[in-house]
Design a protein around this nucleic acid. Sequence first.
DNA 1: GTTCTTAAAATTATAGATAAAAACGAATCT
DNA 2: AGATTCGTTTTTATCTATAATTTTAAGAAC
Lengths: 216, 216
Amino acid sequence: MTSDKDNTITGKITRALADRIIAGHIAPGSKLRQDHFAEEFGASHVPVREAFRRLEAQGLVVSEPRRGVRVASFDIAEVREVAEMRASLEVLALRHAAPHLTTAILDEAEAINRAGENAADVRAWEETNRAFHRLILTPCGMPRLLTTIDDLHAASARFLFSGFRMEWGAPTDQDHRAILKALRDRQFDVAAATLARHVKWIGAKPGAKPRLKTLS
Amino acid sequence: MTSDKDNTITGKITRALADRIIAGHIAPGSKLRQDHFAEEFGASHVPVREAFRRLEAQGLVVSEPRRGVRVASFDIAEVREVAEMRASLEVLALRHAAPHLTTAILDEAEAINRAGENAADVRAWEETNRAFHRLILTPCGMPRLLTTIDDLHAASARFLFSGFRMEWGAPTDQDHRAILKALRDRQFDVAAATLARHVKWIGAKPGAKPRLKTLS
DNA sequence: GTTCTTAAAATTATAGATAAAAACGAATCT
DNA sequence: AGATTCGTTTTTATCTATAATTTTAAGAAC
């Protein structure tokens, strides 16, 4: 989260490109030409370059000096890496958020969870999934941790959208329910363990086709 | 960790500014004026702006649109936050690195540790401390995790250098030795637990003067 | 047919210039 | 006296233009 509302052109380009990359609209490894996007957004290439730097820091693009930037490609190893990082950090966040979780928050989380079960497509489901995690983790009051988790969520979502269509929904929502129940019962260790397993499961899914190329 | 060797002007400015901010040469909250640094580095302000975006992602500066960037200020809460994140992530890295740790690596780590005991000043000690951690964690083979840890190390170092002069050295090096011993004995859980305590200790140090202002 | 060299085209990286927004200060009004 | 408004000045954000570097392609030599 770079800023509250970033009305600057750089911010708009950053968000637009991030959305496209995450949605898989632009294939991994594609060259991103600054003039192209400058023309598309009706801007010069200077803000485009600044947007590239932000995306680079987010891990969505890789930049080779004097050679331009490409959409970051990821293999199954990196997906697992992101999943493990998420597991560690979300558990940390949950530990600190747990004491501040009110019944109202848990009720809202349950509502989001129910909405996720009826999600029409992967995109909508991912939206509610992210909302769920964000809701129960935000009370930890650790902004740097939350932004790092957000970046990891983006990477996860990218994988989720990229070509591989697995059966999504049921199992994870069961996990969500189990987490909420443990939180209501004040069994924080159980909640944390369930959360860790839940997050890692995404990366360890055997059904994932490893047809993603690694070019670096 | 933007690139291997970043000969571009943006890279040079980024490193120079990061060093100064970490070393405490520029006070937290100070405005960073792009023209000023453009002139100092004999460059235009475009690469300066790109450097700002990188530093922003690293958490070293905060940027308000149309208002410029300021050196990020940090209070004791954020120091603890960074310490906890480091603890979680370094433990994760160590768990994956442990199986690949050779005797040669551990010997080198011990040599670095010895060098750290004779460090003349805080700066030199931090250098060896970072080298130690990096050496035993790199074999995990998780690049994203390692760069995130590097960023957290930078934040930690910033706190270490900022005004507060505590007795450094002895206790942490004992921790380092304990970690190495546990690794040699293949007691990975002990090593991980010691590492976590060691990292958190930095942030929890009661001797730290909380005279750092938070302006946000 | 392959490979090396060389030239041309495309693209990146930076500089210089312009417009717009915010900070600062002075003068005026209450 | 204090507050407020208006204008000046500083600084940011962006655009246009230029230099340098890489990639592409063509042609010649082997």
